[in-house]
């Protein structure tokens, strides 16, 4: 009994602990661009397109918006309004690591799924840089005043179409405009544990994007897309298809 008394202070410590009693944990979302499952290095590495043609990537960047966890009761827990994911500047090693965004102190428990917009919701896209606070990730994006839209996603690179080892054909794909946003729900339980970080891994497979459904995107015909809305919407659909949670 006398020994026990020495433990009292420590028991008191645990009981009087400052934080509230609810369990909270952190959530990290990790994004990796792949090509046929292999991480995409933006360092001149060639990837197979079709008919012995090759493509390489220089800039891969996109916004995701209205990021929410869906609770089992149908309500949702908001994580972030908008994040910019930049997968450029990667060699083979850093490409595999990808880029992450983290959210802290999320209520612990099981969630049904995670959902976000690939691109910007209309609400965000109708804002202009002048009206947005300086710390917003939107300020690191590009605003296209001609469209009245941010660029949601950028995939830039080059292609070697005549198989001579030189990438002479430019690929400049910019997706934007309210018609191009694609909300996507990624099913599967998300468990947030007390004082732990849960990581969800997302992969954007650019082979699916450019070769998807046995219907290759015609990079020869469409070298640069920044105004043709139907082609842009096709690309937005392809990118959404290529976006998966592992």
């Amino acid at each position: 009994m006398k020994k026990f008394i020495y433990l009292l202070p420590f028991i008191a410590l645990t009981i009087f602990s400052c934080g509230d009693d609810d369990a909270v944990g952190d959530l990290e979302l990790n994004f990796v661009a792949t090509y046929d499952g292999q991480p995409v290095a933006t360092d001149g590495t060639f990837y197979d397109y079709q008919n012995d043609q090759k493509i390489q990537f220089e800039n891969i960047r996109f916004f995701i918006a209205e990021i929410e966890l869906e609770n089992n009761d149908g309500s949702s827990t908001s994580l972030s309004e908008v994040e910019l994911i930049n997968l450029s500047g990667k060699d083979a090693v850093t490409a595999a690591e990808g880029e992450s965004v983290s959210f802290e102190e999320i209520k612990g428990g099981d969630y049904k799924s995670i959902t976000f917009h690939i691109g910007l919701s209309e609400r965000l896209n109708n804002l202009k840089p002048a009206d947005i606070e300086a710390t917003s990730p939107l300020q690191d994006g590009t605003y296209w005043s001609g469209w009245g839209s941010f660029i949601f996603s950028t995939v830039e690179g080059k292609a070697d179409l005549d198989n001579d080892g030189i990438a002479e054909h430019n690929m400049v794909y910019h997706i934007g405009g309210n018609q191009s946003v694609r909300p996507k729900t990624f099913a599967g339980e998300v468990e947030i544990k007390n004082n732990k970080t849960t990581t969800l891994n997302f992969e954007i497979d650019l082979k699916d994007m450019f070769m998807g459904n046995g219907q290759p995107f015609d990079i020869e015909k469409f070298s640069a897309i920044h105004t043709e809305t139907d082609v842009m919407e096709d690309l937005a659909d392809r990118m959404t298809e290529a976006f998966n949670r592992n």
Binding site: K2, I5, L8, F16
Partner: peptide, 19 residues
């Protein structure tokens, strides 16, 4: 011994609340 324990307890709790 009990007195000492009591003061230790009070001191630690006080310190903790302060933090």
């Amino acid at each position: 011994i009990n007195k000492i324990s009591f003061f230790v307890l009070v001191a630690i709790v006080a310190l903790f609340c302060d933090s």
